[in-house]
Amino acid sequence: MIAIALRFSIGSEGFALPNRADVWSLRLTNVVAGVSVGMALGVAGALLQAILRNPLASPFLLGLTSGAGLGVVVATYITYLATGAILMSGPPVFAVLLGSFGALGLVYLLSQRRGTPEPTSLVLVGVIVSVCCAALTSFIQHLMPDQGMAVYTRWVMGAISAETGTVTLWTVAGATVAGTLWAMTLGDDLDAAALSDDEARSVGVSLGRLRAVSVLIAGLLTAGSVLLAGPIAFVGLIAPHLARRVAGPGHRWGICATALAGGALVVLADSGVAFIRTPSGRMPIGVLTAIIGGPLFIWLLRREREL
């Protein structure tokens, strides 16, 4: 997996190896961001699928992406009100963070039952918070001229941009690796959490604590990925399934494999969008992952029957 990721990433943006140092560093930025985003989404998806016992769970279930999207339009709108202009540069970091953590916090609090997030409530609350954030986002978009729409539309499709600040990039990448290792230490607990609640508790899993920690790690990882690349569809859903085919149902190595699969997927997709030139510039990476991810998921579904 690592090999695939590296090979394709170096071969991207035209097939020649770069011969200038600054191009190398730009590509390095892209590769680090891509691997980090893919790892984060994959591991977050694996954690959520495990604690919700739901093969369709994905990181965006936590409402965090829609929250971040809302953050982006609100920030764009405030800038517009203050200066009368729409800034076409990338969304401000604090707006994305505020939006994602706001939504995550809301979902986390509203899905509590007896002090821990309860799986069914988490899914329902996540969907509802997402819908509400999306509605507010549309409303604010209507208050702005058309370029305001464009900022959001570009952001929401996801892109790995070489403009990401070095500090942000390496902080998020470091946090992603830390989060992945942390998630791996939960492996045995996550395995036993595949049993019913009573059984998991009876063999010694502190289910409430496990759920809280997992949601927290998944939330932080997803927020990091959204910060680097906006929402990228399907990676968090598919990477855990791909990993399970290779590493089996166990979570300790499953999470490691998921991180590799996710990283590889995103770097591959990023190579793809760098290679496919459209008249209006780079295609957003989220478009490619969705186009490839959808059929891939259906294929997996038909292969396994039971996911």
Partner: peptide
């Protein structure tokens, strides 16, 4: 604490359920 209790009390429910595709030995 769950881990401590697990060393003293085991529980067999009426219907067991396992979400993931683990084999019998792992369960």
């Amino acid at each position: 604490a769950a881990r401590h209790r697990a060393t003293r009390i085991a529980y067999v429910p009426q219907r067991s359920s396992v979400w993931a595709g683990f084999d019998v030995r792992t369960i």
